[in-house]
Lab assay of single mutants.
Amino acid sequence: MSIQHFRVALIPFFAAFCLPVFAHPETLVKVKDAEDQLGARVGYIELDLNSGKILESFRPEERFPMMSTFKVLLCGAVLSRVDAGQEQLGRRIHYSQNDLVEYSPVTEKHLTDGMTVRELCSAAITMSDNTAANLLLTTIGGPKELTAFLHNMGDHVTRLDRWEPELNEAIPNDERDTTMPAAMATTLRKLLTGELLTLASRQQLIDWMEADKVAGPLLRSALPAGWFIADKSGAGERGSRGIIAALGPDGKPSRIVVIYTTGSQATMDERNRQIAEIGASLIKHW
């Protein structure tokens, strides 16, 4: 067993022997301040990774656009098919120029040779490549099948209805392509620590998230040296922004954090800054 596999296998073990965790309302004060600064709703939840206990939450059962955070769930569904012998990570998928959609920095470079399922998941999570996500959605049967996968996990809230990039439209009061912070946090925890996926697939999923290259201005910008984070960000229309993450000190994750916002007129930089400040408060009061 590799060191990384050992780390993920012992996530519940280490967490069980940690000192009790206590909620700190100071972080919620910052979440509410972010709402004021952005002029928009902000949803927040913080779960203990081992027990699933909610440590703090704000608007945990209000719907927010998922945006690209759905790509972690998508690759979880792909990995479940791999575990069941219905898919192979090494299978190569070929596609054409007509398949390319807006923001496809990886797939646009491989029109000639195609990409493997493993490479597509890596591109979808680490670079948020939209064509990679659409190609992977095709392998599982489309958005409705991802929703069905989530329902089978016990998540009857999260739903995907459309493809990239239309799913980022974020129309107010439109339930399409949305989740709730509580539902997303619980589902992410199941994917990373539950028995739904094999140990190898859980490790692969967290490795992809740990290698995320496009979430630097968010929670990662607030992390002290030595902290662990595996995350996936999302951005959408109407001032929408979000991030889902597993993080913790001492090089291992111990909490799940989900943050979503929508309806702001603020710039992307300002949305990023507010999420980073929430992260800084979380870490300060850990």
Rank of each mutant, 00 (worst) to 15 (best):
M1G: 00
H5I: 06
F6S: 08
R7Y: 09
A9D: 05
F13I: 10
A15M: 15
F17D: 03
V21M: 05
A23C: 07
A23D: 05
P25G: 08
P25M: 10
T27E: 03
L28K: 09
K30I: 09
K30Q: 10
A34N: 03
D36W: 15
A40N: 08
R41V: 09
V42E: 00
I45E: 05
L47I: 14
L49Q: 05
N50A: 12
S51L: 05
I54C: 09
L55T: 08
F58Y: 15
P60F: 09
P60A: 15
F64S: 01
M67I: 07
F70K: 02
V72K: 00
L73K: 01
L79Q: 03
L79P: 00
L79N: 02
R81N: 13
R81P: 00
A84K: 11
G85I: 04
L89P: 07
I93Y: 06
N98P: 09
E102D: 15
Y103D: 04
Y103H: 08
S104K: 02
P105N: 05
L111S: 08
D113M: 10
V117L: 11
A124K: 00
A124N: 04
T126M: 09
M127Y: 11
S128Q: 00
S128L: 00
T131L: 06
A132E: 00
L137G: 04
I140Q: 06
G142M: 02
K144I: 13
E145G: 15
A148F: 12
L150I: 14
N152D: 15
N152Y: 13
N152K: 13
D155T: 01
R159A: 06
R162T: 08
W163I: 10
W163D: 09
E166K: 13
N168K: 02
I171C: 14
N173H: 12
N173R: 13
T179K: 00
T179A: 03
A182T: 13
T186C: 15
K190W: 09
L191Q: 04
G194N: 10
G194I: 05
L197M: 09
S201V: 03
R202M: 06
Q203S: 13
Q204H: 11
L205F: 05
D207G: 14
D207T: 12
E210M: 10
L218Q: 03
A222K: 15
A222V: 14
L223F: 05
L223S: 06
F228S: 07
I229H: 02
A230E: 01
K232F: 00
S233N: 01
G234T: 00
A235T: 06
G236F: 01
G236I: 02
R238F: 14
R241M: 04
I244L: 09
A246G: 06
A246D: 03
L247Q: 02
P249C: 07
P249D: 07
D250N: 15
D250Q: 15
R255D: 00
Y260N: 01
T262Q: 07
G263D: 06
S264F: 04
Q265H: 14
A266W: 06
Q274E: 14
A276P: 01
E277C: 07
E277R: 12
I278L: 08
I283H: 05
K284P: 03
